[in-house]
Design a binder for these strands. Sequence first.
DNA 1: AAATAAATTTAGTTATGTCTAAAAATTTTT
DNA 2: AAAAATTTTTAGACATAACTAAATTTATTT
Lengths: 218, 218
Amino acid sequence: MNTLAEENYLKAILNISFNTNKKVSTNEISNVLKTSPASVTDMLKKLLEKKLVEYEKYKGVELSNSGKQYAINILRKHRLWETFLVEHLGFNWSEVHEIAEELEHIKSTKLIDKLDAFLGYPKFDPHGEPIPNKEGVIPNVKSTSLDQMEVGFAGHVLGVTIDDKLFLDYLTKLNIKIGTKIEIIQKIDFDKSLIVRIENIQNHISFDVAKNILIKNN
Amino acid sequence: MNTLAEENYLKAILNISFNTNKKVSTNEISNVLKTSPASVTDMLKKLLEKKLVEYEKYKGVELSNSGKQYAINILRKHRLWETFLVEHLGFNWSEVHEIAEELEHIKSTKLIDKLDAFLGYPKFDPHGEPIPNKEGVIPNVKSTSLDQMEVGFAGHVLGVTIDDKLFLDYLTKLNIKIGTKIEIIQKIDFDKSLIVRIENIQNHISFDVAKNILIKNN
DNA sequence: AAATAAATTTAGTTATGTCTAAAAATTTTT
DNA sequence: AAAAATTTTTAGACATAACTAAATTTATTT
Ligand SMILES: [Mn+2]
Ligand SMILES: [Mn+2]
Ligand SMILES: [Mn+2]
Ligand SMILES: [Mn+2]
């Protein structure tokens, strides 16, 4: 078995590579985990030793097959727990990430399979993020981030790509949740911000916000 | 906040003092936690520093008020999670202790309060052990261990005092669960073992087994 | 193609929590 | 009340996972 710190590194590498499709750099990992680059280097050596990553110094890192399977399983646990917290315990979507950061490290496979069954084998978590199944297969839904849509576009929110509390509380204040209809009224070239209509109320949102909102891809 | 190791020591001290009502010795703790006596001494110094225990060297240890509250809260979390696992995920009573050993360290107070509500504020866990409430009050039920009852006694199982897998699986094989009616047919003086009738089947159980079965106290 | 800047690694340190072996204190036996 | 046995503590070591500061490598400018 791997330690909690090792699991957090594996998950961080997986999450970063979902976005970039390149080898992951030491600095990217240190930013995500809020540790020093030197600590990251130390850990990468250990993960290499365990054959959970492919790593050459100064060249970046990627997960090995076994490392990837392991990381996906942590992601599965994270998202199933988030689903439980929202659906059954009545948490709102901005509160669950932090708690799931702890719950995802509970080891029992039987527990997570029974939880999965209890939840009815959900395919998406409360943020619209896909939940890997027992075999590690991640449901694939074609989606585009809101910032890439054109003026005049109207569609429904499929999910978000980060589950940071500040971000989600802000969305809630804007009346945006999964399924909300959003229309793009105008795009500001200068800062790439958007003027949008949400439930018939007009609002101005930044590029950074739009980038993290996913829209169904027809 | 305290570390996982500190929490385990606090809980161990609480559990031991439930049985003995005396100051807890270094060796008792090392037996429960399967660590060396030297490690226990190290940790007791740290807990003393944090004022979670009262401790003088060579004199044994007891929990301070704050240490006791803290330990009771871990016990509360342990037993609520065990209840969830049995009642909602379909685990049997012998499987849940090990998993709850991990779940009891999840920090969020809001989580445990919502779980408590979800479960309907249970007073006893799947082993018949009392669940402390939010204020740290432990339901008090008068009970006696089976070994203390006389020949001719007949009554119902209220709970067990350990939740070791081997013990619980053995009870299940004997057809003993919470509520099961047990009659004492005979007591063997030599080894204090008992011949009992369980659901109309006669069986011979050791003193060690009888000692850990609780019977309602009229 | 140097020079400069940025990213990464190495070296050395620290805190936690464990261990074994040896020393010291306490308890039990004679 | 000594001696012996047991318990507990101390001393010294080790693994994990972090850090800062310095050195090295790679990337970017000039
Ligand atoms: Mn999350
Ligand atoms: Mn999520
Ligand atoms: Mn238990
Ligand atoms: Mn229990």
